[in-house]
Amino acid sequence: MKKFYFIVLLLLIGTSTTFSQTTAPADSMVYVCPPCNGSCDQLQFDKPGVCPHCGMALVKMSLSDFKKLLAAKPITIAFYLQDGVEVLDFAGPMEVFITAGFNVITVSKTYKPIRSKTVLFITPDYTIADAPKSDILVVFGGPTQPTIDDPEVMAWLKAQISSDKYVMSVCTGAFILGKTGILDNLTATTFHTAIGDLAKAYPKTKVLANTRFVDNGTVITTAGISAGIDGALHLVEKLRGRPYAKSVAETIEYDKWVPDNGLIVKTN
């Protein structure tokens, strides 16, 4: 019996050693939980293994980079959604940003449930009358003409845009950004069948085909549907670094992400 207790004690000591929080120097490497938007995102360990809280494999990171992540300013992202919005256009980037620990809010003209392109209904968090200030604005594809033709909505969207604020479009959401004027004299992309229409509608914009995303510094446009995930991961990389973005991709099991697999016109 004593031998049994001794073995149990050794196992407990080994477990606590594997998952103990480290007090290593700032330039050393630590093991942290991949972003899962849980409290364990703030923990650090001194050995590789599995997070005892969420069960995910720990990833290696410098302690200084980890501290920068913990001290980073919280980010709020506003998703403007309209009737007929393509589900994966917004659901893919939403999963990326939420996993990255960002605060995502949905905004529409009214509180009326939004019917997506298929059967999904979405109840917006806010309307254009009461939406809080956000750090990033994202617009999406689907039937964009009603949004473009709505002066109230376009006035609100234009008011959200500033030189120091990130703006992103997915798929034909680029038509909405084009209407605000922000794409003038920039390079952009959109859904592959709408390339010609975007170029015709906004002749001041250089429109590229066969491009997953185009980054103009603070203005990012992506191609259709799944390309929005690439654009979202690229934005996470800009804000939190490549190792963090890579861990986000691994968390959501998106193994198709290739960093820089787009056109980067300008960095900021």
Rank of each mutant, 00 (worst) to 15 (best):
K2A: 12
K3H: 14
K3A: 15
F6E: 10
I7Y: 14
I13M: 11
I13D: 01
S20I: 13
D27A: 13
D41P: 03
L43D: 04
P48M: 08
G49D: 01
V50I: 09
M56R: 14
S62I: 09
S62C: 12
F66S: 06
L70R: 07
A71C: 10
A72G: 07
I75F: 09
T76V: 11
L88N: 01
D89V: 02
F90K: 02
A91R: 04
G92Q: 06
T99C: 05
G101D: 01
N103W: 07
T106D: 11
S108P: 06
T110N: 09
Y111S: 14
V119G: 14
I122L: 08
P124I: 01
T127F: 00
I128H: 01
D130P: 11
A131P: 06
V138H: 02
V139Y: 01
W156V: 03
I161E: 10
S163F: 03
S169E: 10
A174S: 12
G178V: 10
T180E: 07
T189M: 03
H192S: 14
K200N: 15
A201F: 04
K206D: 13
A209V: 13
T211F: 02
R212F: 02
F213L: 01
D215I: 08
G217D: 06
G217N: 11
G231N: 07
L233T: 07
V236M: 04
E237T: 08
P243C: 00
K246G: 10
K246M: 13
A249N: 05
E253R: 15
W257M: 06
D260R: 12
N261V: 05
L263G: 09
N268T: 15
N268V: 15
